[in-house]
């Protein structure tokens, strides 16, 4: 945890000193990068570090969709299913992905490599359909592109 505290210190230095409370979200992001998913004890840890009520951090943790509260696979595939991507065939691709990975929405493959999440708009409407694997975008998808991306990851 000490190295985490160092990172926390470095991050909090970039914010004005009176804005400790603002650091809740950045620290949660940071912690998630470190640990993959977050639990309530992490929230309490951050709250203690910042001196804010633990409930505030817990609320934030449960409220923001990017924060994972359950263990996820090594690669988190987030497929956009909003209007523009749907118009360009996202539903078909989601079915394809489900079938290819053999998992449903929100599930992780048994080998722990992939987690399939369906998300709302990724702001890639012009290049729809799109998905985000871990943090990087993959746009203008088709079955072939998906095959290639998955190939590359494994």
């Amino acid at each position: 945890m000490s190295c985490l505290a160092d990172k926390f210190d470095r991050l909090s230095a970039t914010y004005p000193a009176q804005m400790r409370s603002s650091l809740v979200l950045p620290l949660l992001h940071l912690m998630q990068e470190e640990k993959g998913h977050l639990t309530e004890s992490d929230a309490v840890f951050i709250a203690d570090y910042l001196g804010v009520p633990a409930m505030q951090v817990k609320e934030a943790l449960s409220w923001y969709t990017m924060l994972q509260r359950a263990p996820v696979g090594r690669h988190v595939i987030k497929v956009c299913r909003n209007i523009s991507c749907s118009l360009m065939g996202a539903e078909r691709l989601i079915d394809y992905l489900k079938q290819k990975l053999g998992i449903g929405e929100g599930e992780t493959t048994p080998d722990g490599r992939f987690t399939l999440l369906l998300v709302e708009c990724l702001a890639s409407c012009g290049t729809a359909p799109a998905m985000q694997v871990n943090d990087s975008y993959h746009e203008e998808l088709s079955e072939a592109r998906i095959d290639a991306i998955l190939e590359e990851l494994s």
Binding site: M55, S62, W63, T65
Partner: peptide, 25 residues
């Protein structure tokens, strides 16, 4: 939050799933 100051309750989750909870611990 405002009267007793214990901050022990909060509304977690969002939208229609929102609910009041305390800390699990």
């Amino acid at each position: 939050q405002e009267v007793s100051g214990s901050h022990q309750l909060g509304i977690v989750e969002r939208g229609s799933h929102a609910r009041v909870e305390r800390l699990e611990t």
